[in-house]
Amino acid sequence: MEVQAVANGPLEGLIVVEAGQLIAGPFCGQLLGDMGATVIKIEPPGKGDPMRAWGRGAPVWWEVIARNKRSVSIDLRKPEGQDLARRLIDGADILIENFRPGTLEGWGLAPGRLHETNPGLIVVRMSGYGQTGPYADRAGFGGIGEAMGGWRNIVGEPDRPPARMGVSIGDTLAATYGCIGALAALRHRDATGQGQVVDSALYEAVLQAMESLVPEYVATGQSRERSGAILPGIAPSNVYPCTDGEFLIGANGEGVFRRLCQAMGQPDLADHPRYCDHASRGRNQTELDELIAGWTRTLSVDALEALMLEHGVPAGRIYKPGDMLADPHFAAREAIVELPDHPRWPGLKMQGVFPKLSLTPGGVRSIAPQSVGEDNQDILGERLGLDEATLSRLAAAGII
């Protein structure tokens, strides 16, 4: 179903076969599809990707992660299904998969074999621990990668067990790095004609986002620990209470802190020996936060926001979905887009396509496939040349 007239995007003409399920593989496919690639998603016949049923209260996550895709139903566990997949992949630029290492090989779809008939193919492989190493064969989900990559240990309050972020950050990081790898591999293929394998491990994707965690430990012997809502030594930068809610202020820079003190009506505070420079504010972080909180408790969120804007202090509200939908900045930049004619969820809204390109922007060109294998006729019939009798036979045998 067409959604809106949008530019086709910088990846128009690129053919992607997505054979993964759940989050990491499909999110990589979403990113490529958002930028204009034709994404052909292989789903198991019957129930399809489990993501079709995921969501809190309503199964609408699928509508985001499967937008701009076409669905074919193929049983990859059956030889005839594997042959269909090979024929599809032979005409593709990129294959995405996030099965346990060795699964593709067991289905006769090893990258080396695929490269025999499609030497320019780029195979993006996402897994918990990567395709090599002593842990490669282990099953791995995003949360496990977050723990191994160092994320979980530093999230939460210091007197409580490790917490988790409220989204599947490990999976989406691995998918994003998989997408980056695919684009880099495309650049190499443009120059040489050679395809290659992109190996994106969940734990390594998380590790990449851990800033200086490891070198700090090597240099000082100190390991970052959970610190709640703050970064130790970075002050003031915290969420502060108001009369009607909470508000985030980040004023740890020298000039910014001085402007905050002016907004507070305490300009001399910026020269106080306990707060006069970055190191001093870090050493006295707790008492400084308590001092600022004592002031913010007397103000409403609206009043505090106005003061921060007036004095040029980086600050902001803690947004929930309703706040995003009501905010004029989100609307002006089309950060959230609407699918007005959606057959199941009329008026459904979701995040738009990022980043924004000035000449060849991506966009939501079509909604997620509403039924498993709804594009079998177009993809298997027209692209692979299967006639009606063959399609009917394959469907009756449970292969599609």
Rank of each mutant, 00 (worst) to 15 (best):
A147E: 02
V206F: 15
F247A: 02
E63H: 08
H115Y: 08
G363L: 09
D268Q: 09
A306E: 15
V16D: 03
Q21V: 00
G29E: 03
K349M: 13
K78T: 04
D90N: 11
E305M: 15
P59R: 01
T176D: 11
I42H: 00
L269D: 02
P158V: 08
F141C: 05
L109D: 00
W345E: 13
A147P: 07
L14I: 15
L114P: 01
Y217T: 07
I94H: 05
I292K: 03
M308K: 09
W345M: 13
A191F: 07
P267E: 02
G398W: 03
E116M: 05
R52N: 04
V313N: 04
L231D: 10
E204W: 14
E216R: 12
G233M: 06
Y319S: 10
L31C: 00
P232M: 06
G29R: 04
T243Q: 15
Q266W: 10
G245Q: 04
L348Q: 10
L213H: 14
E290R: 10
V60M: 06
E246D: 11
S223D: 02
A219H: 14
L386V: 03
H311G: 08
G55Y: 06
I40N: 00
I74F: 11
S212A: 14
V123Y: 13
W62K: 05
C242E: 10
A163V: 14
E157I: 02
D190P: 01
L31F: 06
Q194G: 10
N153K: 09
P355G: 00
E63K: 07
T390P: 00
V214T: 08
T286M: 14
G245T: 03
